[in-house]
């Protein structure tokens, strides 16, 4: 928690200092890139390297900005305090009027991922969400597709009221935290981004080993990157080129390797139809 606050303070202070140095002549001295736990955004060393790479490609300094929840990032995007963000398909579907799609990352060569239902490794019986009736359940974030929308809509489609199904549910504000909550036994089940869980197997195998994937959802569009609708086209294009072009050089490939991604692909609006349907099923406004 302290670490997160320190990160926030540092990320806020850096552009402020840069602004003072560059003076008022240049209005947009850097691009502010919001991150959410759709990927392992708490690896600061990686973020610094990626920021340096993108800054070099785009020609404008890139600053990463992290917040506690997806919603915080969306608020900042809408208020133009962020220029781009890596968000989840669910917030994209809800807020697409105010955003422009930038890229859909390719995971295992596909712009797709799954939501996993994970349980403690000791629990070998649970195979579906209905099995967790009366248990404590960990959601990732109320604005997460894989960590909230998918399990809720799955229950709803089975005719189960998700608000009554679990004895108690809570948000962990991150996929890694869901894994920790389930691994520690705080929750008897949790909904997690399949890509994050897979990647954690490489980064934190001991933690992941204490959990078991009890159920995998169908595939949905991978969490996309988007820019605020008001961002100029040239910058948008430069960003897209930089992201998509990461496969073209060694540094970019290494960074993609660290992200456990194949590439950053082009953006396709229709890829999110599946998530939009879920949102409609769950009765979310704006979907």
């Amino acid at each position: 928690m302290n670490r997160r606050r320190a990160l926030e303070a540092g990320l806020l202070a850096l552009p402020a200092a840069a602004a003072l140095a560059q003076g008022p002549a240049v209005p947009r001295r850097s691009l502010r890139f919001g991150t959410t736990p759709v990927f392992l955004d708490d690896q600061l060393g990686f973020l610094a390297r990626w920021a340096a790479y993108l800054s070099n490609s785009v020609g404008v300094p890139i600053d990463f900005v992290s917040r506690r929840s997806y919603r915080d990032i969306m608020v900042l995007l809408r208020s133009q305090e962020l220029d781009l963000a890596w968000i989840c398909g669910f917030p994209w579907v809800v807020n697409r009027a105010e955003l422009r799609g930038l890229s859909i990352p390719l995971y295992l060569g596909q712009p797709l991922y799954q939501s996993y239902l994970i349980v403690p490794a000791a629990d070998t019986g649970t195979t579906s969400l209905p099995d967790l009736r009366g248990k404590v359940f960990a959601y990732s974030d109320p604005d997460s597709n894989s960590g909230w929308l998918v399990p809720r809509s799955a229950l709803l489609s089975s005719g189960i009221d998700p608000d009554r199904h679990f004895a108690r549910s809570f948000y962990t504000w991150g996929h890694r935290n869901v894994v920790q909550a389930v691994a520690s036994g705080l929750a008897q089940g949790g909904a997690v981004d399949g890509y994050v869980w897979d990647t954690l197997q490489r980064v934190a195998p001991a933690l992941v080993a204490r959990t078991r994937v009890a159920w995998r959802s169908q595939s949905y569009a991978f969490p996309p990157l988007a820019v605020r609708a008001s961002l100029d086209e040239a910058t948008e294009q430069a960003l897209r080129r930089a992201l998509v072009g990461m496969t073209d050089d060694g540094v970019g490939q290494r960074l993609l390797g660290e992200l456990n991604l194949s590439a950053f692909g082009s953006f396709d609006e229709r890829a999110f139809d599946g998530i939009a349907k879920l949102a409609a099923l769950a009765g979310v406004r704006g979907a």
Binding site: M1, A138, R168, F170, T172, W173, L186
Partner: peptide, 10 residues
């Protein structure tokens, strides 16, 4: 805030 996770982390 009924925030189980933050309480748990603390």
């Amino acid at each position: 805030r009924d925030d189980v996770w933050e309480a748990f982390e603390a």
